[in-house]
Design a protein around this nucleic acid. Sequence first.
DNA 1: GAAGATATTTAGCCTTAACGAATAATATTA
DNA 2: TAATATTATTCGTTAAGGCTAAATATCTTC
Lengths: 222, 222
Amino acid sequence: MKERGSIVAEEYLQAIYSLQACGEPVKSIALSKWLKCSPSTVHATVSRLLRDKLVRIKKNKEICLTDQGFQKAESLMRRHRLVEQFLYRTLGISWHEVHQHAHVMEHGLTPLVEEKLAEFLEFPSSCPHGTPIPGNKNLIPKETKGLNEFQSDDRIQIIFIGESLEESLDLLKLLQEKSVLPGTHHLITEKTDITKTIVLQHENSSVTLPYDIAGKIGAIKC
Amino acid sequence: MKERGSIVAEEYLQAIYSLQACGEPVKSIALSKWLKCSPSTVHATVSRLLRDKLVRIKKNKEICLTDQGFQKAESLMRRHRLVEQFLYRTLGISWHEVHQHAHVMEHGLTPLVEEKLAEFLEFPSSCPHGTPIPGNKNLIPKETKGLNEFQSDDRIQIIFIGESLEESLDLLKLLQEKSVLPGTHHLITEKTDITKTIVLQHENSSVTLPYDIAGKIGAIKC
DNA sequence: GAAGATATTTAGCCTTAACGAATAATATTA
DNA sequence: TAATATTATTCGTTAAGGCTAAATATCTTC
């Protein structure tokens, strides 16, 4: 087997990758919140990643992945999403639960298993929440915007549920119940700047989502 | 997720379980060889297992699992063998390779994934090498003996390839090439005490195995 | 039963990963 | 600009796991 850097290092790389994907500048305080550990721990661990040339620190203290770190992070994300598909499609584990189980499993996939699993699943292009699996380009239509950017009466189609929302089991469960899933269509019945909420309707049910959550859900007009 | 004891602790429990299953008394030196680490490391780690009431030390320094440790070890072995079946049957990874990949994967299965995987595989009763998955009784016929205990001209059927042989890729590859697999039939063409070897024949090919290896392969007369 | 071999345990040192508390460096904003 | 947050870093600790080398125990074997 390969010299697989520690699980903790892998989690940091993934966190950095995910935060970057969210568009936010990756500062150590953000990692500290994302990974739920103290700033001093983050500092120590990031120093090791730096030593191992997996990250680089910009003058403004922003942490970014080196080519090497990026490769590793992408490989990890690929494994994570592949495992999510496996748990969802093959084992029938519910949509809102797959993320947490995949998070535990992903670190134990050897390259061969990853390859064979991808083959078995017929090379899925995204995870069950709609986020593309690295290597699949142009999957997200370029007109995709955050849900909060649409207006009342817009009819929209959900494209993906942002990664950062996957951490909350309850939220995912709610989204699932209300059919806020990749591919489904909804009507925006209300959008209120005062309360900063948006209301989606699908068939007979509706959900109210605050802007900050809605902004992490990608959708297109249709 | 659960407070899953460390991976290292899990590996020790498995090692103790496996050694015990081999019939050998489990002393710290044996663990040290099995796990390829220094005696002092074994001592320190076993002390932690002792503290956590997962093992007990007999007056003659033999290490044995407590009820609690045994439960954990069995659960681990169950996961290991389940994963082996998955890698072999579902992903099509070759028979001689599954063990090492399963060894990396097994620590990442949550109870839910374990349950769903067992269901998906239709509750297999043994691993691809013939060793029963805990919970399946009477799978090994009681007349099963080590290959070295049979005589020239005996016709035998392989029941299982002992766990301790799974560590060697090359040996497994050879056994596979020579069809020494659970369920296959062979004729013992030679057995020599002087060289301590036994020769098996299957169709047009034959293999010579030293007693110590043959003794770890279970078979029945037929 | 003493000598020699083999096992076990201690002791000392290292790395990773985590913590809290204190301090230094940056931003913010009054 | 000075005062106040917010961030980042340093320091001192703890625990798990790993190592080597040395000291004890425990067998064997003569």
